[in-house]
């Protein structure tokens, strides 16, 4: 019985319920509590595997720093794709390259892959867990060398994500 992770999951699900219905009379709250209890008993230990990392307040500060960075990169990515779509000669030079990553935790890898997909010109295709290698489809290949590609694509997010999730 992993009690701590179940409690964390219960709080998350119950808060989600309260935000979705936005009604604070006792019937809504009671039904939400019962359903959240049931769900967290069944599936609590799947979603939250390491509850002790949630205590550190520094991680929340780095997360607050990560969100504006992510939105800014996303905006740049959209303008880049819009330029490539509208241009009559279609200036693309696609290819799949390898990059290295040092992240180990599942949540960190998921966030890294999502960030790579929504940032300029790159989309993650697959990753190899043992070797720590991500395969990335790049719409405009600048270098096929693994070190330079890592420097260009992964480095700006990996530094922040390692402080949040590791």
């Amino acid at each position: 019985m992993k009690v701590k992770s179940r409690i964390v999951f219960f709080i998350v699900v119950f808060g989600l319920w309260l935000l979705l219905c936005m009604a604070f009379d006792w019937e809504h709250v009671l039904i939400g509590a019962v359903v959240a209890c049931f769900v967290s008993l069944i599936a609590g230990d799947i979603f939250v595997t390491r509850p002790h990392v949630l205590k550190n307040p520094l991680r929340y500060l780095w997360f607050m720093y990560y969100v504006p960075l992510f939105i800014w990169e996303c905006l740049k990515a959209n303008l880049d794709v819009a330029y490539r779509v509208i241009h009559p000669m279609r200036p693309i030079k696609p290819g799949i390259v390898k990059v290295k990553t040092g992240l180990k935790s599942e949540t960190g890898l998921t966030f890294l892959a999502n960030s790579i997909t929504l940032t300029p010109g790159t989309m993650s295709v697959d990753f190899d867990r043992e070797k720590g290698i991500l395969y990335i489809h790049w719409i405009n290949v600048a270098s096929m060398d693994i070190e330079k590609a890592t420097e260009r694509i992964v480095a700006r997010f990996e530094r922040v994500l390692a402080k949040i999730f590791e």
Binding site: V81, R90, I92, L118, I139
Partner: peptide, 24 residues
């Protein structure tokens, strides 16, 4: 994003253009 879905040459480029633009 939908214009990119029509214009780009293969599956991976279509995914690139359409996913980014339509999500944002």
């Amino acid at each position: 994003g939908c214009i990119g879905l029509v214009r780009m040459p293969d599956v991976y480029n279509r995914l690139q253009a359409s996913t980014k633009c339509v999500t944002f």
